[in-house]
Design a protein around this nucleic acid. Sequence first.
DNA 1: CCGTTCCTGGAT
DNA 2: ATCCAGGAACGG
Length: 275
Amino acid sequence: MPELPEVETVKRSLEPYLAGEKITGVEIYYGGIVKEPEPAVFRALVQDKEIKSLGRRGKYLLLNLSGDLTLVIHLRMTGRLTVTDRAQPVDKHTHLIFRLSGEKELRFTDVRKFGLVYLVPTGCWNSIGGLFTLGPEPLEEEFTLACLHEKVERKKNTKLKNFLLDQREIAGIGNIYADEILFEAGLHPERPLATLTPEEIKRLFCAIRSRLGAGVESRGTSFRDYVDGTGAKGNFQNELKVYGRGGEPCGKCGTQLVKSVVAGRGTVFCPRCQS
DNA sequence: CCGTTCCTGGAT
DNA sequence: ATCCAGGAACGG
């Protein structure tokens, strides 16, 4: 599931292939992926634009085009965005292809069709609700311990895991990194925010930076579908301490890891190390 | 806040 | 044959 570290890795891996390239054509095989504008207008607007730069906000990938337009792409759970040789056979689940000037093309593939693509004027995110209301970037300077304190104080009764998954609070954390962050911080996923001590908030802050940073360093988690922009798998799946390990012994204390449901998501934690 | 919906492949 | 995975929008 592409979360912040995965989307950042896709962005970095695509940059050398896409920056400065011209989009010479677009093929839309499944129009449902293109949310705005309608597919015919989308195709016409993208035609012959240059990809000036790539960016990321939370789990959103941004392709800044000439003409002050930005292609906003969300991979949701199973989306893949890859640079592929034109000659390579098209996958059954490829919904969108951007032809490039060279021998390569950019393909959007998504088994579950949950991915989202928008084309909007650069900076005009108001039509994309999830992007418009996105919280701070946790790996940037803007996200400080004071900032986390303030957020925690405002959402007293919220459970920690719900808080971490809320993109309006902090951008880019999904189910995998939420569980890994809580394990590293030694905090129970159902702890109400109001019960956190300053020391625990500090631990949470450090764990957010550390786990997301480590995820980026390892080029993301290829637990299932995720690959980067060149089709390469990440390595962070080898460093997961709790996600996907329900029933296994905790790496720190040996207690059996518990799998439950919190915030409507599968949640794994150590009942001894996390309180 | 919580549950439901979207969608498909893989697990049971 | 049925259930489960889950990001984010939406309804209650």
